[in-house]
């Protein structure tokens, strides 16, 4: 869980950096070049497959752990008060993970599937034709329900990583009285707040723009 999770965290950073091209005010040129690069570069393609594998592993492992943990306490307590002993996020990783999974399916269907197998509009940049991912994204994000789904999902990712990032280090046995607080802060401010916020800003931006 820790290894796959932390790998996915790094993926998230790369993904975000790329997607920030959406904010370039160039009618989507930079973004379309970026998405073409991502779709065709052999190295990226390999990494992408590793990434899919980690996602699958993370999902399967997650369900397996949840099932095992449920088995470890077949009869629950009538009254449980864990508010003082653990964070809400840490107790709801499976729920948050499931929300993220649903999001992931919608997300992959909208963009990844379309890019690979769909009937994409085409745009021309410097004489070459490219699949116009930019307009697909802008169109999708302009729909309020779609933007809302994204925002909710980014909250889920934020909470998931609020616990998950630091937890990954703990599971790998990386803990030090001086550095662990820094890891926790990184998890909170970068992975739980900044990254999901920037991701969420994209649909919000295009949705508002369209209103």
């Amino acid at each position: 869980m820790a290894l796959s999770g932390l790998f996915l965290c790094t993926f998230l950073v790369v993904h975000l950096l790329g997607n920030l091209q959406l904010f370039q005010n160039d009618g989507g040129v930079a973004f379309n070049l970026y998405s073409a690069f991502m779709a065709n570069n052999p190295l990226i393609k390999t990494i992408a497959y590793v990434n899919y594998a980690f996602i699958l592993l993370h999902i399967i492992d997650g369900f397996y752990l949840a099932a095992q943990n449920r088995k470890a306490r077949p009869q629950g307590y009538a009254k449980v008060d864990q508010s003082k002993s653990s964070s809400w996020s840490s107790r709801n990783m499976a729920l948050l993970g499931t929300i993220i999974l649903v999001f992931l399916i919608v997300h992959m269907k909208s963009f990844w599937f379309e890019m690979k197998f769909g009937n994409m509009p085409v745009t021309t940049i410097e004489g070459q034709s490219y699949k116009d991912m930019y307009s697909v994204v802008v169109e999708a994000f302009s729909q309020p329900w779609y933007a809302a789904l994204y925002v909710v999902s980014m909250f889920a990712i934020g909470f998931h990583l609020y616990h998950g990032f630091a937890s990954g280090f703990q599971s790998l046995g990386i803990r030090h009285h001086r550095y662990t607080p820094a890891i926790q802060n990184l998890g909170t401010f970068l992975f739980a707040i900044l990254i999901p916020a920037l991701f969420a800003a994209m649909p919000v931006y295009f949705c508002l723009k369209n209103l």
Partner: peptide, 8 residues
């Protein structure tokens, strides 16, 4: 069960 580092 497994440890999910809730810290409780």
């Amino acid at each position: 069960g497994n440890c999910t580092n809730t810290g409780a």
